[in-house]
């Protein structure tokens, strides 16, 4: 059964970091698969279209989301306004106004990003099911479906702060 260190050593996942403010420390861990990191790179390099709903661009929204997650900020304000949502099959969705990120929690406060996509595309093409199935398949292929995967659907199961 592989450990998180094994997954990092084999390149199955990589640690994702963002710059924290001077007096902040990371309270949570964030990882991404090579495909997800490639998608992030494309977004930074402007290879994806840059249409956005609010005042922040897609990369700014993601930076703000990752910063909130890593610095331990609340990700849920109330039932309606939340940055995180449980899907079926132990899959979780991180949300910004324009972007949806799908992945799973290996442990509490330890999330792996697997797919990133535009919110409109996910909703218009109903990609939720496909992403859920693909993430479950990936966990099985990595041999972590029964070991490094939090099953709970309550935010308190996956976030400690």
């Amino acid at each position: 059964m592989p450990t998180i260190e094994d997954l990092v050593a084999t390149g199955a996942i990589s640690r994702i970091e963002v710059e924290l403010d001077g007096r902040e420390q990371a309270q949570r861990l964030l990882y991404g698969t090579p495909n997800f990191i490639e998608w992030l790179g494309k977004l930074i390099n402007g290879e994806e279209s840059e249409g956005h709903l609010g005042q922040a661009t897609a990369v700014e929204q993601i930076d703000q989301l990752f910063h909130s997650y890593l610095s331990g900020a609340p990700l849920i304000h109330n039932r309606q306004f939340r940055y995180i949502r449980a899907e079926e099959n132990a899959v979780w969705e991180l949300k910004t106004p324009d972007i949806r990120i799908f992945g799973w929690f290996m442990k509490r406060d330890c999330f792996v990003c697997v797919f990133g996509d535009w919110a409109d595309k996910v909703k218009d093409h109903d990609l939720y099911r496909g992403y859920r199935i693909a993430i479950r398949r990936l966990r099985r292929e990595l041999g972590v479906d029964n070991t490094l995967c939090v099953q709970g659907v309550d935010p308190g199961d996956v976030l400690s702060v």
């Binding site: 640690r15 609010g54 990369v59 930076d63 703000q64 909130s68």
Partner: peptide, 24 residues
Amino acid sequence: MTSFQFDIGSRARNAGRFIGRVRN
């Protein structure tokens, strides 16, 4: 790659996080 720094530049970072803080 064992670690990836998501770095969008200080100007964009400053803007995005400020907008997020106001909303929060």
